[in-house]
Design a protein around this nucleic acid. Structure first.
Lengths: 159, 159
DNA sequence: AGCAATTAGATTGCTTGCAATTTAATTGCT
DNA sequence: AGCAATTAAATTGCAAGCAATCTAATTGCT
């Protein structure tokens, strides 16, 4: 009764960690979070908060739903996150008078000014890499996402 | 005093969301988590717990530190996660008699048996894609990680 | 042997992230 | 108009993830 299981030890075993496509993605994302963390902390932001700022710097007023569609996050994630950003003074939250179901998130003056101090972030982050590698990264990610997007059972999100 | 900020609106703006390398990675990882969630929930696992099981199915006894080195996670993440897996009956945790600082995580019989039921997971997940796309994904991720790994200021982890 | 430095995990406190549910506003249909 | 269905956020409950700190065991050095 010693070898009850232990099947599939060969390298065709689908359950080998090194055969997983998703694990490197998972690990890389955790790594990126750790790398961004200290840089963004100086601005008073976390990584997802930084993403929200990127969206708002493009369009200063956005509903929670629009932010979520852009970032693939739902209100369960965004609501508390936005409350923290409001407490930090970067945005305001207010019901849309034209449709009271919606909540409009608006950049504050402080939030707009923060953009100046954030301008160096992409370069700072890229500085760990050679310029060619950044292009290579960009291309790999583009391919990756383009392939992932073809999944037969898409998630809710925008679609 | 109306246009205090609003510089860099062009497409050379480094702060455009669509120019970010890391955002698609972040979004893709969240997506993968949502896709794996329901499949793994039937086994009583979450995605990071599944990763721990993959490692343990390869080596049935591992210290917390070894697991962390393999998965790039620290004890702050692993300790509570492993306690939940212990409560679920998949592993046991015990101090290493040879070095009482270490905690050895060991597969239980139930944890070994679970492997059978997990064998279909990789295929199930890949089923949303055409076989060629999976190869393409694998190659993109390989490139991605290989480039990321060249960052000048590596994180702690194994190294 | 004795003690400082190191190492391995655990703990604390905080922020995501998501499923499921709830609440309130709006639409649509009759 | 009246009411069911839909929609947008908020809320609840739980599991990660990580920095910082703490504790206990081991190493290393004299």
């Amino acid at each position: 009764m010693s070898k009850v299981v232990a099947t599939q030890a060969g390298e065709d075993d689908p359950l080998l960690l090194d055969r997983q496509v998703c694990f490197p993605l998972y690990a890389a994302t955790n790594l990126l979070n750790r790398l961004y963390g200290p840089v963004l902390a100086k601005l008073g932001l976390t990584y997802p908060q930084y993403l929200v700022m990127l969206v708002l710097w493009e369009h200063q007023v956005q509903s929670v739903g629009e932010l979520g569609a852009r970032l693939y996050l739902d209100s369960g994630t965004l609501t508390p996150l936005l409350k923290r950003m409001e407490a930090a003074g970067f945005v305001t939250r207010a019901r849309d008078p034209a449709d009271e179901r919606r909540v409009l998130v608006t950049l504050t003056a402080e939030g707009k000014v923060l953009r100046e101090r954030a301008l160096h972030v992409p370069e700072t982050m890229a500085n760990g890499y050679r310029p060619d590698d950044v292009d290579s990264l960009r291309e790999s990610v583009r391919q990756l996402v383009s392939t992932l997007a073809q999944h037969k059972t898409r998630p809710p999100a925008t679609e």
